[in-house]
Design a protein around this nucleic acid. Structure first.
Length: 237
RNA sequence: GCAGAGUGAGACACUAU
């Protein structure tokens, strides 16, 4: 659908309507998500040339695209130009960076970014913390993960579905089934208060349980989970 | 004048590389 987007973009200009930050941001993000990096950079250059100033969303979209492409030097470069442009990262930008460092296993850098964020007076939210939980979980650092979980609760941040699933799958991979079950019980208790996005909201959590038990050769438990899943009206996927 | 509307971040499984 890029050709259509481009056509509209041209029409806009011939109609005398100058693209603004919104327009460019939308295009840059679309190209980035569609892995059209050359076009994305072209749009970015065009944006700069038209005297339109990139904002935090522009930089975030760029960094997100570079992350997906594995171009981490470009992420850093974008971050730099963002800072030089006097644009300060916000929660979402920090979450993105934290996620990048976490996924690359650069835990010190991740922690440093979190500190920097706090010093900048930027409050981490659930998404930020989920990224950190995931990093520690995948690294097998369960104590650290639990610490982060607790500090998250202490900040009165309510873990959402993604946060719970992160915890569950970390414990599942570590074969810490008791802990996994405790978290799952907790999830079931709070699931009702969570905003229901789909008709069967707890589904991904069941997937994690079944997968974990299956790989841990806990066939009985796996079957129990599968049954419970069906009884609660979830479609196995 | 007022009000509203458009752009960025996180988890799991399945399939493909």
């Amino acid at each position: 659908l890029y050709d259509r987007m481009e056509r509209v973009f041209e029409q806009m200009q011939t109609a005398g309507c100058m693209p603004d930050v919104f327009t460019f941001n939308t295009m840059i993000d679309a190209y980035g998500k569609g892995l059209q990096y050359a076009k994305m950079e072209h749009a970015y250059r065009r944006m700069l040339m038209s005297g339109c100033h990139p904002d935090i969303r522009t930089y975030s979209s760029l960094m997100d695209a570079y992350r997906k492409a594995g171009l981490y030097e470009d992420v850093e470069a974008t971050l730099k130009s963002m800072c030089t442009a006097g644009c300060k990262p916000d929660v979402k930008a920090y979450s993105l960076l934290i996620d990048i460092y976490g996924k690359r296993g650069r835990l010190e850098k991740m922690e440093a970014t979190l500190k920097e964020m706090q010093l900048a007076g930027c409050r981490a939210n659930v998404v930020t913390y989920t990224g950190i939980l995931d990093a520690y979980g995948k690294a097998g650092l369960f104590e650290q993960m639990e610490e982060v979980w607790l500090s998250m609760i202490n900040l009165h941040l309510k873990p959402d579905m993604s946060a719970y699933v992160t915890m569950l799958s970390a414990y599942g991979k570590g074969r810490l089934f008791d802990k996994m079950e405790m978290v799952f019980e907790e999830l079931k208790a709070v699931a009702k208060t969570m905003k229901i996005v789909g008709p069967k909201p707890v589904c991904p959590a069941y997937n994690v349980l079944i997968d974990a038990y299956g790989k841990g050769k806990e066939i009985r438990k796996m079957e129990e989970a599968f049954e419970a899943m069906q009884q609660t009206g979830h479609q196995p996927s």
